[in-house]
Amino acid sequence: MIYLDHAATAFPRSRAVVAAVEQALVHGGSPGRSGHRLSRWSDEQVWRARERLARLVGAAAPENVTFALNATAALNTIINHFAKIGGVVLISAFEHNSVTRPIHAARARGLQSPRREDLAVASRAVIESVVGITPAIAR
């Protein structure tokens, strides 16, 4: 998951954010919910955003990009999905409550605690992605 929520906390808002809000107020409709002009315009804007984000993050297709109401809803969706499929989630001791609470609840529904081997692989991957090389200590 890649978290893009700059507009929620940045102040003053950038001109691009103000312009997007103005466009939505003038032209916006509910995307995917109707066939009228404003709804189709909104649907096209959402699709264009998915296409751009898919290119930005290297997603295989725009269909792989989803939007959530907020970060907490997105985190809950992902954590609950991993619990449903019996997945593994690695977190640090510094996570926000919006991460730790659903993870603790999801453990009761099948979310797995990571195995020692998983932690070693994850540690190597993080070090390689941050440093850009494979340090000897991570091998």
Rank of each mutant, 00 (worst) to 15 (best):
P62S: 13
V17C: 02
E44W: 00
T66Q: 14
L90M: 07
G86T: 01
R55P: 01
H81Q: 08
E63R: 14
P31W: 02
A61G: 14
S14T: 12
A54G: 01
R116S: 15
R40N: 12
P114G: 04
R124H: 03
A61M: 11
T100A: 11
S30T: 09
G29C: 06
G86V: 03
T100L: 13
G29Y: 04
S14G: 10
L56T: 01
G29F: 06
Q23K: 13
S42I: 04
R55S: 05
P102W: 09
E44R: 08
V130G: 13
S39N: 08
A93W: 03
F67Q: 06
H81E: 09
A49W: 05
A7V: 11
P62A: 11
R40L: 15
H6Q: 07
H27Q: 14
R48I: 02
G28C: 09
A59C: 01
S30R: 09
A122F: 02
R50N: 12
R50S: 10
D43M: 07
I137Y: 09
S98L: 14
N80A: 04
L119Y: 00
A7I: 11
L53R: 04
W41C: 08
G86C: 02
Y3A: 13
P135L: 12
V18K: 08
A136H: 09
H81T: 07
A125M: 04
V17M: 01
E51Q: 13
F82L: 03
A10W: 03
R37M: 05
M1R: 10
I78P: 06
P135T: 10
V46W: 01
I137Q: 11
